[in-house]
């Protein structure tokens, strides 16, 4: 079953045709990796899935994106969509507040008042993000005191706290060292049991390690997509071949 279906999607930043006629299915509870050279539109595509591109001036989008069968661009409630589609950014962006408050932010923003409920969700989310044991004694200290990898896992916990169905990750490990990266990859292996994950990555090894499906983009076009094995071992298109073999990109 497909969680997200993208049909004939075109996106323009002003004159810049950043996404060209993209059609792609994102399967439920699988990890889908988006790969391709810099500037090919991976982040842009990711940001159409939770309508973060709405924040950019002069964006024009045609085509449609269905989420559980519902066209997200026809639906006016962007906030409800973003609650169901969480996002983790390339550079960890904890808020300037305590660890606890970071995870509780989304809940409070939804108007959840019960301290008990918030506490429970915060613990649960931190556990799911494999961060609980490291921070349980200092929930009230500043989030900036965490290491880079911990900060990124905090951001994942913050997204999980909203109980989303989909988590979008834009190069979540590109700013991290190998050990922190490994931790997050392990975490994703757990997360895929509950969530649908779409991840942008520049590391082909990472895609090979964690992704069930892989989609390769090239200058705004979706060149090829399929099982990760197939993309890396038997690519059909020569551009894909070139990219995954490391000839360019």
């Amino acid at each position: 079953m497909n969680k997200l279906t993208i049909n004939n999607l075109d996106l323009f930043y002003g004159e810049n045709h950043a996404l060209k006629d993209i059609s792609l299915n994102i399967p439920n509870r699988k990890v889908t990796a988006l790969i391709g050279p810099s500037g090919c539109g991976k982040s842009t595509l990711l940001r159409t899935l939770n309508r973060m591109n709405d924040l950019v001036e002069n964006v024009k989008i045609t085509g449609d994106v269905h989420f559980d069968g519902e066209d997200i661009y026809q639906q006016s409630d962007v906030k409800a969509l973003r609650k169901r589609v969480g996002m983790v950014f390339q550079k960890a962006n904890p808020f300037p507040m305590s660890i606890f408050e970071n995870v509780a932010f989304g809940l409070k923003a939804q108007g959840v008042k019960s301290t008990e409920e918030i506490k429970a969700v915060v613990e649960e989310s931190l556990r799911s993000a494999a961060l609980w044991d490291e921070v349980k004694d200092r929930l009230d200290s500043d989030a900036f005191g965490l290491s880079g990898g911990q900060q990124q896992r905090l951001c994942i916990a913050r997204a999980i706290a909203m109980e989303p169905e989909v988590i979008l990750m834009d190069e979540p490990t590109s700013a991290l060292d190998p050990i922190a990266t490994h931790k997050i990859e392990e975490l994703m292996d757990e997360l895929r049991k509950k969530f649908t994950i779409v991840i942008v990555t520049h590391s082909m090894n990472q895609a090979k390690r964690i992704a069930d499906k892989t989609a390769f983009f090239w200058m705004g076009e979706l060149v090829e997509h399929g099982e990760t094995d197939q993309i890396f071992n038997n690519p059909i298109d020569t551009r894909t071949q070139g990219y995954v073999s490391g000839e360019f990109g």
């Binding site: 969680k3 108007g111 909203m162 169905e165």
Partner: peptide, 11 residues
């Protein structure tokens, strides 16, 4: 999908 129906926070 079950994740959707168990979503307690849906407004």
């Amino acid at each position: 999908d079950s994740a959707m129906t168990t979503n307690t926070l849906k407004l």
